[in-house]
Computed example of a mutant assay.
Amino acid sequence: MSYKLLHSRLYQFLRSFTTMAIAKGRPPALTNPTLVKIINQFYKFASIEADSIKHFPGYDDRNFYFRGVPTDSKKEAEFVLKMFNSLHSSHDVVVGISEIWTHIASKGFTYSSCLRNWEKKAVTFVPKSLCEEANVSGSTETYAVRILYFVSGELFDSIDKQYLTPKLMREAGTFLGQLDAALKDGFHNTAIGQRKNVDWDLSHLLHMRIHLPAMDNLSRRAMVEKIVNDFESFVQPKMPSFSRGVLHGDANGMNLIVKENESDEYQIAGLIDFDDTVLSCHVFEIAIFLAYIMIENLNPIDYPSPVEFVCTVLQGYLQVFPLSKDEINCLYYLVLGRCCQSAVLGEIAYKAEPWNSYLLTTPEKAYKLMEILLAMGKENVDMIWVKAC
């Protein structure tokens, strides 16, 4: 067998293996009747409005919005049901996430309260066999399920760009810094501390190398490889000195809730979806947030580039949660690292579910941001951000 043929077959195997690994634990795409059946089996509802059910797109889990009347309250309310990826359905971790809500509530943060099941527990473990689309009778695998009361307001990413004022951007950064400070102040959970979210924790960015064979675009693959190599050379040696703690882990404009105040200005109302929470380096939190805000604002109004656009976010964060010189110096590499994760994992997830076009929306913009940042260079980006600090 020729070298080229052997290489081609190995590449196809690795590509297939990587795609299957991403999709392996993802819950099945439930139909509305199946979802209603699961809800009624484990929760007390007088009625569920089946026509209200909407599927919220996601990478790893399944998220559904619905309206219903809980038996206890006898009043219609809005809910979000999350069915976790089976690989993330550890009982201790899911319960640990609930303990985060309790802790931040004691610090004055608003969070989405949880609807208890028949056993008055916050988390339900649904057998895979109940998900008829899975077609796995006899399986012992389970998916963790949680139902939360829907948080009213608008998503940060959904409001008109004209309302993304320096004041609101600074407030967003301040809010995130206050959240990290609150979690740093007295919160500890063993399960979360031991959690290994290899794909999404920036600590494990080198893991992206495993996914390189699944990338069809060679120029993009080379770009990702450079970013991962730079992380290994310039960030990893400094990580032992970085401040560590429990992070939200996925702060972005689709998780940040805003509301209009009496002056018709938007203000930050809360942050949802703590399901990627992990014990890691604090600087990763703001790096992730900066990456996603820039991804959604590649051509911001009245700013030369997305780098200048997020300066007030960084200012707001650092005012309440200062970072060391080394941590700030690594922001450039960390933002690029999150872009890599979002782009590569999104593409792989799409190959597992080619009908789900949502999975490609962020990757395309993430690649564009990588190109912008690499073209500007670290020195120029640092000059803008350090000046803002």
Rank of each mutant, 00 (worst) to 15 (best):
S2P: 08
H7A: 15
Q12C: 08
F13P: 03
R15Y: 03
S16A: 13
F17W: 11
F17Y: 10
K24A: 14
T31R: 15
F45A: 09
S47N: 11
I48Y: 04
S52R: 07
I53K: 09
F56N: 01
P57S: 04
G58L: 12
D61E: 02
R62M: 11
F64H: 03
F66T: 01
G68Q: 04
V69L: 13
D72V: 09
F84M: 08
S86Y: 00
L87F: 11
L87N: 10
H88G: 06
W101A: 03
W101D: 01
T102L: 10
F109T: 05
F109D: 00
L115Y: 05
R116F: 14
W118S: 08
K120E: 07
K121V: 09
C131M: 15
A134M: 12
N135F: 13
G138I: 02
S139I: 08
R146G: 05
F150L: 03
E154T: 03
L155E: 02
S158K: 02
I159M: 05
D160K: 07
D160A: 15
K161F: 14
Q162F: 11
L168D: 04
L168H: 03
L176S: 12
G177M: 04
D180T: 06
A181W: 06
F187A: 06
H188N: 06
N189H: 13
T190P: 06
G193V: 02
R195A: 05
K196L: 12
V198K: 14
D199H: 05
D201T: 04
D201P: 11
H204I: 02
M208L: 15
F231E: 04
S233M: 15
F234I: 07
Q236K: 15
K238T: 06
K238P: 10
M239E: 02
P240C: 12
R244D: 03
R244C: 14
G245V: 09
V246A: 07
A251K: 00
I257N: 01
E265D: 13
F274L: 15
F274N: 02
D276H: 05
D276W: 05
V278P: 08
I286Y: 01
I286R: 00
I286N: 00
A291H: 00
D302P: 03
P304L: 06
S305I: 02
E308W: 02
F309D: 04
L314N: 07
G316M: 09
F321N: 08
P322D: 03
D326M: 10
D326L: 09
I328M: 13
I328D: 06
N329Q: 11
Y333D: 10
L334R: 01
V335P: 07
S342M: 05
A343F: 00
A343H: 01
E347Y: 04
I348L: 14
E353W: 11
Y358S: 10
T362G: 08
P363Q: 03
Y367D: 13
Y367A: 15
L369S: 09
L369H: 06
L369V: 09
E371L: 12
L374D: 13
I384Y: 00
C389V: 12
